[in-house]
Write a protein that binds this DNA or RNA. Structure first.
Lengths: 215, 215, 215, 215
DNA sequence: CATGAATGAGTCTTCATTCAT
DNA sequence: CATGAATGAAGACTCATTCAT
């Protein structure tokens, strides 16, 4: 009809296109959650056709899974090693803090992994499973170490502690994202750490000083 | 054709019909999760037509929301009052136990409320919001009482404690439902109660005896 | 825009609707072959939406399979019993004649069964398999009877004879439908019967009179 | 970026490239059948881009048609002349044997020609039409010769005989490829030849000795 | 000139919702 | 009133073909 800007078929290197698709998908996932991510919209926002997505990804599910993997890799990519010489309390706090800050950044993604991918029959063969396992394993390992060295009591299972930590992190984050209450990552990390640490500390064990940051 | 009295299709009173639809929906929700509840199947299992559902409910979402409300009402309907003379620890344990056992009974419903309804823009105007608030308020009230009476410290927000409790409950339940690990409501209730109670107990406050049930 | 005939949502009893869909599909299958039958066109020709098709059929494949079954049932529905006292030749001719006339009526359907369904992994569990088997079994049975009673030689396998008969029938029909050459069902039936009968007749066995119809 | 000589991607002469594409397509056609030949995979296996295929072929259909032509040419390329002095029976047997062995080698190709190309509106103007005609003509010619020299009766049309021969060949081959029953080219060739020859032999004509090979 | 990224018109399938009977 | 046949707007995924580089 008119002299529209010729709709120039954009042409990108595969890597860039893949990055773009994943970035857009990640954004969409954040906005709407897994079930509501629609391939047509991903294509739209990228300014490409749906077919192009399927050039690079076998299925919607695969696309979403790769987005999740990438996210996990970002998390895990940072400082794998704990601060040397730090005590249980400080190391626990660091892990909680990390979890909080990442989940806060990408709550929908975390929900996708937690609720959708985990239910997938083939979840255990997915790369994301291993990545996720590695992340949660850090906390489990720490808790087990605390128990086996006599710092923590043994009357509550590590499994349950981990659930309280991750559950607490998620609930806190989601509530915040729904606009309920204020939210300071530092404060929440301190709170969770305090409750777990004090609640599990073996009577008589040397209590590490609580930094009481942000209080 | 003729005046057959075959029409066994019971002509239920509206209230009974509504109850039946909701009961079936609840069952379906338990089996398959929100996204997979299909109106056609609800009608089928009720032995009625799809149209009839829409006589009583404006939309699928409304139906589901009312089912959730009903569920909450059941939870709240029971023993509103705490056991007389019980201490903080015991009352906390009871609430946690209750939360665990209900979520375990209706995990899909709880997930629906937690994940779907809460994101609804009009959530705050829904009856379910008020009901949910009332349930969580019981724990909040208890925690606040503990703080204000000097039993609990004041260095961790009640909000965060509540998140750890509910988050812990949920994670534990979901993990169990995915087939990960064993699950005893008693044990989990004890564990969560212990961690919160011991972790928050004001130094010097009288420690209630831990029943250590199921240990 | 104009006073179009209100596009009245047509409403049919399920049986009629199913019949209509199957009739249209059968027609389409005749015109274009299986791979080119498109659900949208079926719906179009019925004046309904695609969704309606899926109310009655689980999938395109099932629709096609049922169409094929119906066709086979028509074939098999007629005179199951051979003419009493007829000889091999006459009975053979009748079967060949029947095959020719039906395949001629529905060549695409026959092709669908022969080429598509048969390759289906679950073909052997399909009703159509049993129906098809029953039809071909009639010819096999007849041929075996001829061999075992000493009317036919035993130096050519029944399997191969059957292939020549059905193959001949099909080729003759398809060629005709492509407009190649003239085609008389009687003549073709006589021809095929003659070749098989004379070619297989045991030297010395009593030759039945050839009716030489259509010669 | 730089002057890397890596470009191993052989720069083939157009003829060689065309040959390669056709060879790969033929292979794919054999494996999957016409409808399932995908241009992307052809390109892939050739190690070239999809675009290149369209440099040499106007469309997928044209590519497939040329592949079929090539195949026919191979068949026809061999020993056009019948063995000198051979009788009708032996010459018939040779042609049948040849048809069987070629169809068995390339059943998908034969099906493609038989079922897809033949239905094409422009089939009669295609080169493949002429080639196919030439192949079938050899059998027709032989049969006509048999009839006109009084070796064969005249009461069954040559057209129908040819259909029985080719139909029998195809059915036998397909059944075998579906895994039904054993299959010996020699035996099948003998069987078909026997039936046709004995079935058509003029009473009183000199019967050629049946070699009874493979019996 | 070959490339290969991109297209877009399909193709089957699903399901909440409507409305004529 | 209740019914249930029908809808239609999506949705995921496919693939022969094109064209800017």
């Amino acid at each position: 009809m008119s002299s529209e800007p010729v709709r120039t078929r954009s042409r990108l290197a595969p890597d860039e296109r893949i990055s773009e698709i994943m970035a857009v998908t990640r954004q969409l996932l954040s906005e709407k959650g897994y079930q509501n991510v629609v391939t047509a919209e991903v294509a739209d926002r990228c300014g490409i056709s749906e077919g192009t997505i399927y050039k690079y990804f076998d299925s919607k599910r695969e696309l979403l899974a790769r987005v999740a993997e990438e996210w996990f890799e970002e998390i895990l990519g940072t400082d794998e090693s704990p601060p040397p010489g730090a005590g249980i309390r400080e190391r626990l706090r660091q892990l909680v803090w990390k979890g909080l800050s990442f989940i806060r950044q990408e709550p929908s993604l975390s929900r996708f992994v937690l609720m959708e991918l985990r239910s997938d029959p083939s979840y255990r063969t997915m790369r994301i499973y291993e990545l996720n396992r590695r992340f949660t394993a850090r906390i489990s390992d720490l808790l087990e170490e605390a128990v086996s060295t006599g710092v923590f009591r043994a009357d509550v299972s590590v499994r349950l502690l981990r659930d309280m930590i991750f559950g607490g992190i998620e609930h806190r984050t989601w509530a915040y994202l729904r606009g309920e209450g204020d939210f300071s990552v530092d404060e929440a990390a301190d709170g969770i750490t305090n409750v777990i640490y004090r609640g599990m500390l073996m009577p008589g064990a040397a209590n590490e000083d609580a930094p009481q940051r942000g209080a």
